[in-house]
Protein backbone atom coordinates (compact mmCIF):
# COMPACT_ATOMS: atom_id res chain seq x y z
CA UNK A 1 0.00 0.00 0.00
CA UNK A 2 1.54 3.33 -1.00
CA UNK A 3 2.01 6.19 1.42
CA UNK A 4 -0.84 8.32 -0.03
CA UNK A 5 -3.33 5.51 0.50
CA UNK A 6 -2.01 4.96 4.03
CA UNK A 7 -2.27 8.66 4.76
CA UNK A 8 -5.84 8.75 3.38
CA UNK A 9 -6.86 5.76 5.48
CA UNK A 10 -5.16 7.29 8.52
CA UNK A 11 -7.00 10.60 8.09
CA UNK A 12 -10.32 8.83 7.52
CA UNK A 13 -9.80 6.64 10.57
CA UNK A 14 -8.84 9.62 12.72
CA UNK A 15 -11.90 11.52 11.46
CA UNK A 16 -14.22 8.63 12.32
CA UNK A 17 -12.65 8.20 15.75
CA UNK A 18 -12.88 11.96 16.43
CA UNK A 19 -16.52 11.88 15.35
CA UNK A 20 -17.34 9.08 17.79
CA UNK A 21 -15.32 10.78 20.54
CA UNK A 22 -17.23 14.02 19.92
CA UNK A 23 -20.61 12.27 19.94
CA UNK A 24 -19.72 10.38 23.11
CA UNK A 25 -18.37 13.52 24.76
CA UNK A 26 -21.48 15.51 23.86
CA UNK A 27 -23.79 12.80 25.24
CA UNK A 28 -21.69 12.60 28.44
CA UNK A 29 -21.77 16.37 28.86
CA UNK A 30 -25.53 16.43 28.30
CA UNK A 31 -25.96 13.65 30.86
CA UNK A 32 -23.90 15.57 33.42
CA UNK A 33 -25.81 18.76 32.61
CA UNK A 34 -29.14 17.00 33.19
CA UNK A 35 -27.79 15.48 36.43
CA UNK A 36 -26.78 18.92 37.72
CA UNK A 37 -30.30 20.28 37.10
CA UNK A 38 -30.81 19.06 40.67
CA UNK A 39 -28.87 22.21 41.65
CA UNK A 40 -31.10 24.49 39.59
CA UNK A 41 -32.72 26.25 42.57
CA UNK A 42 -29.49 27.59 44.11
CA UNK A 43 -28.34 28.51 40.59
CA UNK A 44 -31.65 30.08 39.51
CA UNK A 45 -30.14 33.53 38.97
CA UNK A 46 -27.69 32.09 36.45
CA UNK A 47 -30.54 30.24 34.69
CA UNK A 48 -32.69 33.38 34.55
CA UNK A 49 -29.74 35.33 33.11
CA UNK A 50 -29.25 32.69 30.43
CA UNK A 51 -33.01 32.64 29.73
CA UNK A 52 -32.81 36.35 29.09
CA UNK A 53 -29.82 35.96 26.78
CA UNK A 54 -31.21 32.94 24.89
CA UNK A 55 -34.92 33.71 24.92
CA UNK A 56 -35.63 37.41 25.21
CA UNK A 57 -32.58 38.29 23.11
CA UNK A 58 -33.69 35.98 20.30
CA UNK A 59 -37.29 37.22 20.23
CA UNK A 60 -36.89 40.02 17.62
CA UNK A 61 -35.02 37.80 15.13
CA UNK A 62 -37.42 34.87 15.61
CA UNK A 63 -40.39 37.22 15.13
CA UNK A 64 -38.97 38.72 11.96
CA UNK A 65 -38.04 35.38 10.37
CA UNK A 66 -41.30 33.70 11.48
CA UNK A 67 -43.57 36.46 10.11
CA UNK A 68 -41.88 36.43 6.72
CA UNK A 69 -41.90 32.62 6.62
CA UNK A 70 -45.64 32.61 7.32
CA UNK A 71 -46.18 35.26 4.66
CA UNK A 72 -44.17 33.38 2.03
CA UNK A 73 -45.89 30.09 2.91
CA UNK A 74 -49.31 31.72 2.63
CA UNK A 75 -48.44 33.41 -0.66
CA UNK A 76 -46.96 30.32 -2.33
CA UNK A 77 -49.68 27.90 -1.27
CA UNK A 78 -52.45 30.47 -1.74
CA UNK A 79 -51.47 31.11 -5.37
CA UNK A 80 -51.51 27.38 -6.14
CA UNK A 81 -54.78 26.79 -4.26
CA UNK A 82 -56.44 29.68 -6.08
CA UNK A 83 -56.01 27.74 -9.37
CA UNK A 84 -58.43 25.19 -7.88
CA UNK A 85 -60.60 27.90 -6.25
CA UNK A 86 -59.90 26.57 -2.76
CA UNK A 87 -57.72 29.43 -1.54
CA UNK A 88 -59.68 29.53 1.76
CA UNK A 89 -57.80 26.30 2.66
CA UNK A 90 -54.59 28.30 2.96
CA UNK A 91 -55.21 28.74 6.70
CA UNK A 92 -55.05 24.99 7.33
CA UNK A 93 -51.80 24.59 5.37
CA UNK A 94 -50.11 27.54 7.10
CA UNK A 95 -51.11 26.53 10.63
CA UNK A 96 -50.31 22.81 10.21
CA UNK A 97 -46.96 23.60 8.53
CA UNK A 98 -46.05 26.13 11.18
CA UNK A 99 -46.90 23.80 14.10
CA UNK A 100 -45.45 20.61 12.66
CA UNK A 101 -42.36 21.83 10.90
CA UNK A 102 -41.56 25.46 10.29
CA UNK A 103 -42.02 26.87 13.78
CA UNK A 104 -39.73 24.38 15.56
CA UNK A 105 -37.10 24.29 12.79
CA UNK A 106 -36.95 28.04 12.16
CA UNK A 107 -36.65 28.81 15.88
CA UNK A 108 -34.01 26.11 16.34
CA UNK A 109 -31.94 27.33 13.40
CA UNK A 110 -32.03 30.92 14.67
CA UNK A 111 -31.17 29.89 18.21
CA UNK A 112 -28.36 27.61 16.97
CA UNK A 113 -26.88 30.47 14.96
CA UNK A 114 -27.32 33.11 17.62
CA UNK A 115 -27.23 31.42 21.03
CA UNK A 116 -25.27 28.25 20.16
CA UNK A 117 -22.50 30.30 18.58
CA UNK A 118 -22.38 32.60 21.61
CA UNK A 119 -22.24 29.61 24.00
CA UNK A 120 -19.39 27.99 22.09
CA UNK A 121 -17.44 31.26 21.79
CA UNK A 122 -17.93 32.21 25.45
CA UNK A 123 -17.04 28.78 26.84
CA UNK A 124 -14.18 28.42 24.34
CA UNK A 125 -12.70 31.75 25.44
CA UNK A 126 -13.04 30.67 29.07
CA UNK A 127 -11.28 27.40 28.25
CA UNK A 128 -8.31 28.94 26.45
CA UNK A 129 -7.89 31.71 29.04
CA UNK A 130 -7.76 29.06 31.82
CA UNK A 131 -10.96 30.36 33.48
CA UNK A 132 -12.45 26.84 33.47
CA UNK A 133 -9.23 25.46 34.98
CA UNK A 134 -9.48 28.17 37.64
CA UNK A 135 -13.05 27.04 38.47
CA UNK A 136 -11.82 23.46 38.87
CA UNK A 137 -9.00 24.54 41.18
CA UNK A 138 -11.65 26.26 43.34
CA UNK A 139 -13.58 22.94 43.47
CA UNK A 140 -16.37 24.54 41.44
CA UNK A 141 -17.82 22.00 39.04
CA UNK A 142 -17.77 23.68 35.57
CA UNK A 143 -20.77 21.60 34.44
CA UNK A 144 -22.87 22.81 37.35
CA UNK A 145 -21.58 26.39 37.13
CA UNK A 146 -21.53 26.89 33.35
CA UNK A 147 -23.29 24.13 31.43
CA UNK A 148 -26.40 23.42 33.51
CA UNK A 149 -27.73 27.03 33.46
CA UNK A 150 -27.27 27.24 29.67
CA UNK A 151 -28.89 23.85 29.08
CA UNK A 152 -31.83 24.53 31.42
CA UNK A 153 -32.38 28.00 29.94
CA UNK A 154 -32.40 26.74 26.36
CA UNK A 155 -34.71 23.80 27.13
CA UNK A 156 -37.13 26.22 28.79
CA UNK A 157 -36.90 29.03 26.26
CA UNK A 158 -36.77 27.29 22.86
CA UNK A 159 -40.34 25.90 23.17
CA UNK A 160 -41.53 29.38 24.22
CA UNK A 161 -39.78 30.94 21.23
CA UNK A 162 -41.24 28.22 19.01
CA UNK A 163 -44.83 28.91 20.14
CA UNK A 164 -44.23 32.62 19.68
CA UNK A 165 -42.74 32.05 16.21
CA UNK A 166 -45.68 29.82 15.19
CA UNK A 167 -48.26 32.40 16.26
CA UNK A 168 -46.42 35.24 14.54
CA UNK A 169 -46.01 33.11 11.40
CA UNK A 170 -49.74 32.29 11.31
CA UNK A 171 -50.52 35.98 11.77
CA UNK A 172 -48.24 36.85 8.82
CA UNK A 173 -49.92 34.18 6.72
CA UNK A 174 -53.38 35.46 7.62
CA UNK A 175 -52.47 39.03 6.63
CA UNK A 176 -51.24 37.88 3.21
CA UNK A 177 -54.29 35.61 2.74
CA UNK A 178 -56.61 38.53 3.49
CA UNK A 179 -54.83 41.17 1.39
CA UNK A 180 -53.79 39.14 -1.64
CA UNK A 181 -56.21 36.21 -1.83
CA UNK A 182 -59.10 37.94 -0.10
CA UNK A 183 -59.51 35.13 2.45
CA UNK A 184 -61.28 36.41 5.52
CA UNK A 185 -59.39 36.29 8.83
CA UNK A 186 -62.16 34.26 10.41
CA UNK A 187 -62.16 31.69 7.58
CA UNK A 188 -58.38 31.49 7.69
CA UNK A 189 -58.38 30.88 11.45
CA UNK A 190 -61.31 28.48 11.40
CA UNK A 191 -59.63 26.32 8.74
CA UNK A 192 -56.40 26.51 10.67
CA UNK A 193 -58.04 25.24 13.84
CA UNK A 194 -60.18 22.60 12.09
CA UNK A 195 -57.27 20.88 10.40
CA UNK A 196 -54.91 21.07 13.34
CA UNK A 197 -54.61 18.00 15.58
CA UNK A 198 -53.22 17.73 19.10
CA UNK A 199 -50.55 15.48 17.63
CA UNK A 200 -49.31 18.39 15.46
CA UNK A 201 -48.92 20.61 18.54
CA UNK A 202 -47.32 17.81 20.57
CA UNK A 203 -44.87 16.83 17.83
CA UNK A 204 -43.83 20.46 17.30
CA UNK A 205 -43.21 21.00 21.00
CA UNK A 206 -41.33 17.70 21.33
CA UNK A 207 -39.13 18.71 18.42
CA UNK A 208 -38.32 22.05 20.01
CA UNK A 209 -37.30 20.38 23.30
CA UNK A 210 -35.10 17.83 21.47
CA UNK A 211 -33.55 20.63 19.38
CA UNK A 212 -32.78 22.59 22.55
CA UNK A 213 -30.89 19.61 24.01
CA UNK A 214 -29.01 19.16 20.73
CA UNK A 215 -28.00 22.82 20.37
CA UNK A 216 -26.97 23.21 24.01
CA UNK A 217 -25.09 19.88 24.08
CA UNK A 218 -23.20 20.44 20.84
CA UNK A 219 -22.38 24.11 21.50
CA UNK A 220 -21.27 23.57 25.10
CA UNK A 221 -19.17 20.54 24.19
CA UNK A 222 -17.44 22.39 21.36
CA UNK A 223 -16.77 25.39 23.60
CA UNK A 224 -15.50 23.30 26.51
CA UNK A 225 -13.09 21.49 24.20
CA UNK A 226 -11.74 24.53 22.34
CA UNK A 227 -7.95 24.65 22.18
CA UNK A 228 -5.33 26.79 20.55
CA UNK A 229 -6.18 30.40 21.40
CA UNK A 230 -8.42 32.71 19.40
CA UNK A 231 -8.19 30.55 16.27
CA UNK A 232 -9.30 27.51 18.25
CA UNK A 233 -12.28 29.41 19.65
CA UNK A 234 -13.25 30.46 16.12
CA UNK A 235 -13.07 26.87 14.89
CA UNK A 236 -15.08 25.62 17.86
CA UNK A 237 -17.77 28.23 17.16
CA UNK A 238 -17.98 27.24 13.49
CA UNK A 239 -18.21 23.55 14.42
CA UNK A 240 -20.91 24.31 16.99
CA UNK A 241 -23.10 26.15 14.47
CA UNK A 242 -22.58 23.73 11.56
CA UNK A 243 -23.14 20.61 13.69
CA UNK A 244 -26.18 22.14 15.39
CA UNK A 245 -27.78 22.97 12.01
CA UNK A 246 -26.95 19.51 10.72
CA UNK A 247 -28.28 17.59 13.70
CA UNK A 248 -31.42 19.73 13.97
CA UNK A 249 -32.29 18.76 10.40
CA UNK A 250 -31.33 15.08 10.86
CA UNK A 251 -33.36 14.77 14.06
CA UNK A 252 -36.21 16.69 12.44
CA UNK A 253 -36.50 13.97 9.80
CA UNK A 254 -36.40 11.10 12.29
CA UNK A 255 -38.85 12.76 14.67
CA UNK A 256 -41.24 13.42 11.76
CA UNK A 257 -40.93 9.73 10.78
CA UNK A 258 -41.58 8.79 14.38
CA UNK A 259 -44.73 10.89 14.72
CA UNK A 260 -46.22 10.40 11.24
Amino acid sequence: MNSRATSFLGRTGTGILNGFAGAGGTICLLGKGIYWCKASIPNRSKIVHQMDVAGVGSLPVVSLVAIFSGMVLSLQTGIELSHFHIEEMVGSIVSVSMFREMGPVISAIIVAGRVGAAMAAELGTMRVSEEIDALETMSINPVRFLIMPRLAALVLMLPVLTVFGILIGIFGGAVIAKNIMNVDYQVFLQNGIDFLHYKDIFSGMTKSVVFAFLIAGISCYQGMNAAGGAEGVGKATIRAVVLSFLFVLIFDYFLTRFFY
Binding site: S129, A134, E136, T137
Partner: peptide, 19 residues
Protein backbone atom coordinates in the same frame (compact mmCIF):
# COMPACT_ATOMS: atom_id res chain seq x y z
CA UNK B 1 -10.69 15.29 43.95
CA UNK B 2 -13.00 18.27 44.55
CA UNK B 3 -12.61 17.75 48.31
CA UNK B 4 -8.81 17.56 48.01
CA UNK B 5 -8.78 20.73 45.90
CA UNK B 6 -10.55 22.63 48.68
CA UNK B 7 -7.18 22.56 50.47
CA UNK B 8 -5.62 24.37 47.50
CA UNK B 9 -5.43 27.85 46.11
CA UNK B 10 -3.89 28.54 42.75
CA UNK B 11 -2.61 31.67 41.05
CA UNK B 12 -2.47 31.23 37.29
CA UNK B 13 0.14 32.85 35.08
CA UNK B 14 -2.66 34.52 33.09
CA UNK B 15 -4.54 35.32 36.35
CA UNK B 16 -7.57 33.42 34.95
CA UNK B 17 -10.13 35.79 36.48
CA UNK B 18 -13.70 35.21 35.33
CA UNK B 19 -14.26 38.06 32.90
Amino acid sequence: LEKIRKQFGMVFQSSALLN
